[in-house]
Amino acid sequence: QLRFETNGEEQAKKVLEEAKKHNLEAHVTIENGKWVVHVK
């Protein structure tokens, strides 16, 4: 499982879109005010 700390909602959405293009499972959590994308 990969973990990407992003700078906010915009970047998190871009990472999610990329993951979906590659048929990867991804979800976002907010940790300590940071948007974190988890990709399987």
Results as ranks from 00 to 15, higher is better:
V15Q: 04
I30M: 09
Q11W: 07
L16R: 02
A12P: 01
N23R: 09
T6H: 03
E31L: 05
K40S: 14
I30V: 13
E18Y: 15
K34E: 05
K20I: 13
V39K: 00
V36P: 03
L2H: 14
N23S: 09
L24K: 06
V28E: 01
E10P: 06
V37M: 00
K40V: 13
H27T: 14
I30C: 14
V36R: 00
V15H: 05
K34W: 06
V28L: 11
G8I: 12
I30P: 01
V37F: 00
K13I: 13
A12N: 00
K21E: 07
E25I: 13
E18N: 12
E31Y: 01
E31A: 05
G33R: 00
K20A: 14
V37G: 02
V28I: 14
G33S: 02
V15M: 14
Q1Y: 15
L16W: 08
L2F: 05
R3G: 07
F4I: 15
L24D: 03
L24N: 04
N32K: 06
F4Y: 14
N7D: 15
Q11E: 15
A26L: 03
K21V: 07
A26M: 03
N7G: 10
L24P: 04
K40D: 11
A19S: 04
G8T: 15
A26D: 02
V37H: 00
T29H: 09
V37W: 00
I30T: 07
I30L: 10
E10V: 08
K34D: 05
T6P: 02
E5A: 04
E5Y: 07
K34S: 07
E17A: 14
T6Q: 03
E9F: 10
K14H: 11
E18A: 15
E18R: 12
Q1I: 14
K14D: 06
K34A: 07
K14V: 11
E17V: 07
E10W: 08
K20G: 07
A26P: 01
Q11M: 13
V39N: 00
A26E: 02
T29I: 11
L16K: 03
E9R: 05
N23Y: 11
E18K: 13
R3F: 07
K14S: 10
K13T: 10
Q11N: 07
N23G: 15
K13P: 01
N32A: 03
I30S: 06
R3S: 09
I30H: 10
V37D: 05
H38C: 12
F4K: 05
H22R: 14
V36D: 01
E9K: 05
E25V: 13
G33P: 02
K20D: 05
K13H: 12
Q1W: 15
K14N: 08
H22K: 11
H27P: 00
F4W: 09
I30W: 06
G8H: 11
A26H: 02
N32G: 10
A12S: 04
K34Y: 10
L16T: 03
V37Y: 00
E17T: 10
N7L: 13
T29R: 07
L2D: 08
H27M: 12
E31W: 01
E10R: 05
F4N: 04
N23L: 08
E10D: 12
E25Y: 06
G33Q: 01
I30R: 09
A19H: 04
N23W: 08
K20Y: 11
E18V: 13
V37I: 08
E10N: 07
N7A: 14
R3K: 07
A12E: 01
L2Y: 06
V28Y: 04
A19I: 10
T29L: 06
K13E: 07
G33V: 00
E31K: 03
E10A: 12
E5D: 05
E18M: 15
K20E: 09
A12M: 06
K21Q: 10
L16H: 03
Q1R: 13
T6F: 15
N23Q: 09
L16D: 02
G8M: 11
E17R: 12
W35D: 04
V15R: 03
V39Y: 02
A26N: 02
T29G: 04
V39I: 14
L24I: 09
H22A: 11
T29F: 07
T29Q: 08
V28A: 07
G8Y: 13
T6G: 03
E25P: 08
V37R: 00
L16Q: 06
T6L: 11
G33M: 01
H22I: 07
Q11R: 03
V36Q: 03
E9G: 04
G8K: 08
T6R: 01
F4S: 05
K14Q: 12
N32P: 00
A19W: 07
W35G: 03
V15S: 02
N32V: 00
G33A: 01
E10M: 08
F4G: 04
E31I: 09
V39Q: 00
E31F: 02
N32I: 00
E9W: 14
N7Q: 13
V15F: 14
H38S: 10
H27K: 10
A19T: 04
E10K: 08
V37Q: 00
E25A: 11
V15A: 06
F4T: 06
L2G: 10
V15D: 02
E9A: 09
W35P: 05
R3A: 08
E10Q: 10
A26R: 00
T6E: 05
K21F: 10
G8R: 07
W35S: 04
T6S: 05
R3I: 12
Q1H: 15
E5N: 02
H22S: 09
R3H: 13
K40P: 07
T29Y: 06
H27D: 05
K34L: 06
N32W: 00
L2Q: 12
